[in-house]
């Protein structure tokens, strides 16, 4: 019986979801929750409340008890007023994507959403999640004329783009008797990087560069001159002697770093299946980045030149993640 009910419920929810999707179409960032797209139904507590009020109403009419009826009517009105409040709490909230945080396969990707509104009244107890009353749902309050953010987490199951196809913003403020909700179908996606392979294969050491061979590279070995201090420069590199002489703040610059440079090539891993190659490349990229070594990445059709730094790492990982991803997987 219970299983059958659950099945029925899942079926109804799927049907309703499809209907809502057809009705609303896809959303573009930022999404404003307008009145027309807010749905509202009593919660289980609300149904119990209604049943209680029905019993009270019948009893009050049976006993011709006007005060009992009065209390019943007050509670009926209170319930209806909270229904309107639940609706009003949601209407007019705007959502936008702050950041889509990538992650490795087997881990998770995150979507940081910004909730904002421009009314002078707080909107408490907004819940964001994928289904109703799920433990992973996030609850947040919107202060008057303010904003707040909420993070949705999706598991990264497959390499490539993980799309946030739909999520639900809901509230059962103020009494938990009614739940107002809006379904958002955003075009948000985050990238799932390949799962790094076990540390087994040593990275191929291609070249070691020294000195100024790398044009324009700024290193740490040889003093190369002074430049005016900029906010963010390390204090250890400030030319304190020059400062003491009253010449102002300067930062010492060095050149000619001892750089180990790799080229990670997809083709060099012949004999492994494609996914394993990508996982191995991912491992190398991570390790090289951790050790502060420069690396280049060569994939069939893509080539990323030698470089260092988090942006470079991310560029490489993204290239690995999106390598030969069938676009159909996004749908």
């Amino acid at each position: 019986m219970r299983r059958w009910l659950r099945y029925l419920r899942a079926r109804i929810e799927r049907r309703a979801g499809a209907w809502i999707r057809r009705r609303q179409g896809a959303d573009t960032d930022p999404v404003e929750l307008r009145r027309q797209r807010i749905y509202i139904l009593p919660t289980r507590l609300g149904v119990a409340y209604g049943a209680m009020l029905c019993a009270m109403l019948l009893g009050g009419m049976n006993y011709n008890n006007n005060l009992g009826l009065g209390l019943t009517f007050l509670l009926v009105s209170l319930g209806l007023v909270t229904m309107h409040h639940a609706h009003g709490t949601l209407a007019g909230v705007r959502l936008r994507l702050l950041e889509a945080v990538p992650g490795f396969v087997g881990g998770e990707v995150r979507f940081r959403l910004l909730l904002e509104h421009s009314s002078n009244v707080a909107r408490p107890a907004l819940e964001i999640g994928f289904a109703r009353a799920e433990s992973g749902n996030v609850t947040t309050d919107l202060p008057p004329r303010g904003s707040s953010d909420a993070t949705l987490v999706l598991p990264a199951q497959r390499r490539g783009r993980v799309a946030l196809e739909r999520f639900i913003v809901s509230t059962s403020h103020p009494f938990g008797l009614f739940r107002a909700w809006a379904v958002v179908h955003p075009a948000y996606s985050a990238i799932a990087w390949p799962r790094p392979a076990e540390r087994a294969m040593p990275p191929p050491l291609i070249a070691t560069d020294t000195g100024g061979a790398q044009t324009g590279a700024i290193g740490a070995e040889d003093f190369a001159g002074l430049r005016p201090f900029q906010a963010g420069d390390s204090l250890r590199r400030v030319a304190w002697k020059a400062y003491a002489r009253g010449q102002g703040l300067y930062t010492k610059q060095f050149a000619g770093t001892d750089v180990v440079s790799h080229v990670f090539d997809y083709e060099s891993l012949a004999g492994l299946p494609a996914e394993s190659r990508l996982e191995q490349l991912c491992r190398w990229v991570l390790d090289a980045q951790e050790r502060g070594e420069a690396f280049a990445l060569r994939l069939p059709g893509t080539s990323i030149d030698t470089n260092v730094g988090p942006a470079h790492r991310e560029r490489c990982l993204n290239a690995l993640a999106l390598f030969e991803v069938r676009e159909a997987a996004r749908a």
Binding site: L58, M61, N62, Y63, N64, N66, L69, G70, F73, L74, V76, S77, L78, L80, V81
Partner: peptide, 20 residues
């Protein structure tokens, strides 16, 4: 906010001659 509606219901909700 609920009070006016409660008053309206009290005044206008049909009082059927009970008991049922």
């Amino acid at each position: 906010l609920a009070a006016p509606l409660a008053l309206l219901l009290f005044l206008l909700f049909p009082r059927l001659p009970g008991p049922f």
